[in-house]
């Protein structure tokens, strides 16, 4: 009697809720997420919570240079819990500020690269034909070179600076997103709802961004989490090699590079602590990314 007229309400979770639910099933992923949030908070709040502004030369004194963890400043009486680098920078503060730069560079370059890559990828898939093949040959060409090489050459041309590092990262990363978005958009373009939308004579822009794009998002998120860790690592590598951020405003990679010379002579803290911070950040993002990939990929669902 009641079976047709009033079907039992089956609770269908919204996609976001389903993903969140599945995500928390993996404890390691949750720890990774918590760590990442903590790191992000530290990075954002660095100017207010760091004991020293390591980028302000007025606050530094080389007389405090190279102190081991726990020593007290001769000039200001502050305690350097993680020691100082040869310039007298408090390593704790430098790591906080370094995280800030590293994350900022990664997030900004990621946003820009995703935007460019998505527009290019969706357009290529939607319009197809010659436009598609030209754009994709460019993407192929770029992906055939190691990102680090291109970034190195670009920065050698542009010089040091946070803005230049971001530009270089955008240039080496957009192609990944263009390729990812294009391939999922290719699949979607052939589906009926796009034909339906076309029949309704909707504008190309509307179809691309209101109908096509939302269906390409899941793979994009997966690539993005992998790439953000990659971007942080790439920035660190570039700064380590001496072409990244300015030396008076070190990011994590530059801090590691500065301490590298002192590693063997026993002043481990200059290099090791920023190294740990970098590794923890990258692993936290990776763990979250891996879990997201599992959750978002329907083929891995059991």
């Amino acid at each position: 009697m009641t079976d047709i007229a009033t079907p039992t309400p089956v609770r269908i979770d919204s996609p976001a809720k389903r993903i969140a639910k599945q995500f928390v099933e993996d404890r390691i992923a949750v720890i990774g997420l918590i760590l990442f949030v903590l790191i992000a908070i530290i990075a954002i709040a660095a100017p207010w919570i760091a004991p020293q502004n390591p980028y302000d030369l007025m606050q530094l004194s080389i007389m405090d240079g190279g102190l081991p963890p726990g020593e007290v400043s001769m000039a200001t009486g502050q305690t350097f819990w993680l020691g100082t680098d040869p310039q007298g920078r408090d390593m704790l503060s430098a790591i906080m500020y370094g995280l800030r730069i590293s994350l900022m560079v990664a997030v900004v370059s990621l946003t820009l690269a995703i935007t460019i890559g998505t527009i290019v990828g969706v357009s290529a898939a939607y319009f197809g034909g010659r436009f598609d093949s030209i754009v994709m040959r460019i993407v192929d060409l770029q992906l055939s070179f190691p990102a680090i090489l291109i970034a190195l050459i670009l920065l050698a041309l542009l010089g040091r600076g946070v803005d230049k590092v971001i530009l270089a990262l955008v240039i080496v990363q957009w192609a990944y997103y263009a390729r990812t978005v294009r391939s999922s958009a290719m699949v979607e373009t052939r589906k009926d709802y796009i034909d339906a939308a076309r029949c309704l004579a909707l504008s190309n822009r509307r179809i691309m961004f209101r109908h096509l794009l939302p269906n390409c998002v899941p793979p994009l998120i997966v690539v993005a989490t992998v790439q953000i860790a990659q971007a942080i690592a790439l920035e660190a590598t570039l700064s380590f090699l001496g072409v990244g951020v300015p030396i008076t405003e070190p990011s994590l990679g530059l801090l590691i590079a500065n301490g590298y010379d002192y590693l063997l002579s026993g002043r481990y803290w200059v290099s090791v602590f920023p190294g740990v911070a970098l590794v923890v950040t990258i692993i936290a993002i990776n763990v979250v990314g891996d879990r997201l990939r599992d959750v978002l990929n329907p083929r891995l669902q059991t």
Binding site: A236, I282, I283, N286
Partner: peptide, 10 residues
């Protein structure tokens, strides 16, 4: 996942 994403220099 560690090995493939750690910076090259590291």
């Amino acid at each position: 996942s560690w090995g493939s994403r750690c910076p090259i220099s590291g």
